[in-house]
Design a protein around this nucleic acid. Structure first.
Lengths: 204, 204
DNA sequence: ACCTCTGTCTACCACTTGGTAGAGAGACCT
DNA sequence: AGGTCTCTCTACCAAGTGGTAGACAGAGGT
């Protein structure tokens, strides 16, 4: 079924679709365009994926798997300090997020698609989110993190990272330059921002 | 030129286009659909706006004006404490942002459109951003805010607010419910999050 | 009564869209 | 050699796209 060639046609279609769907929106990208990107005809795309919908589902499945791998790997950071742990996740997520903004862009795209597609990704990520929330609550109880609604904190932190990684327009508006140095600077400011947002407040 | 009727056809087209463009993406929405929403034929839309592009530009012009009004009004908060000032802006922005996610959704959409459209909005918002950055820097110097790159802090704060307001999918993933109480809760958590992210660090 | 201007309409067009039908080339098995 | 299976192709199609041309109804001015 699957050819022995490493970068099979199927996989190349998936890659191209992820980039295009994520960067320009699912509805704005035609099968013809994806096919042209891969170097085949549209009918070859439709051979591997019976419909555009099915292709989208397959792409989402892949994104879910990738996200889970990246995050889960970073969570294994050994440092017991929760702030360091969060920092490790941010550092790990930042590179792929900025290098391939289409990935998080596609996640964002879910909001404007029929619910069915969102479900596909959510069921995969849900356990990770739950474990994360549980962990944060535990550390809040221990006084290592600012007391807050852990679920919403996860959402807020995610919104911050995704927003800054995908919303090029905002960065341009504040005069940021996408150089290598600018990238590192952005990453460090993001880390400091989240660290401050999560650290326990000493005043109260 | 402009009819005396308050909600003129032109204005109703603008409103419908903003909602549809912002919530589902510019490319995914057809002129026919906008017309149907307003209750006229597509050709009436094309009578008021010579092309889809021109309609988009008009919508962006309106969004820019609205954004500037809302933010500028909130900035006039009299409280001298910068944290209170930021808080006032968040409170002011939160309601319209959540009640009409299409508005911020459209701003996010800019990233996936030709640059020309982005410029239209940027030139309008730029002065506001610059004033904001200047203000933050001044307060950082005075030790009232955490020392950081003010420009990126503006971007990060914006990303957080926009992300949490437009990314329904994320909120669903963390189990948030869009009730009235949930809304207030979300707003307060957002305020606390940003306050913590901006407050001066006492440890160092 | 006539004219002009405004706003909405019907009719149409060239082009693109997602998708179907089926031909043909090559690899592999017997 | 013949047959089957995998993969990519050409040839279409119905529906929808943004946009043009122009008819028509009403209001106002003369």
């Amino acid at each position: 079924m699957v050819p022995s060639r490493e970068t099979s046609t199927r996989q190349r279609i998936l890659d191209a679709a992820l980039d295009l769907f994520g960067s320009r929106g699912v509805d704005a990208v035609s099968l013809d365009e994806i096919a042209r990107d891969v170097g085949v005809r549209k009918q070859t795309v439709l051979y591997w994926f019976a419909s555009k919908d099915e292709l989208l589902d397959a792409v989402l499945e892949e994104v879910a798997a990738d996200l889970v791998v990246v995050i889960a790997a970073a969570v294994r950071s050994a440092d017991p300090d929760p702030l360091e742990r969060v920092d490790a996740v941010v550092r790990a997520v930042f590179r792929p997020a900025v290098r391939r903004p289409a990935m998080l862009g596609l996640v964002r795209e879910l909001t404007r698609l029929p619910e069915v597609h969102g479900d596909r990704l959510r069921v995969r990520v849900q356990p990770l989110v739950d474990r994360c929330v549980e962990y944060l609550e535990q550390e809040m109880d221990a006084g290592h993190l600012r007391r807050a609604d852990a679920r919403l904190v996860v959402g807020l932190a995610y919104a911050t990272v995704t927003g800054i990684a995908t919303d090029r327009e905002v960065l341009r508006a504040v005069g940021w330059q996408p150089t290598t140095a600018g990238l590192r600077h952005l990453r460090d400011e993001l880390r400091a921002f989240l660290r401050a947002a999560l650290a326990p407040t000493v005043s109260a």
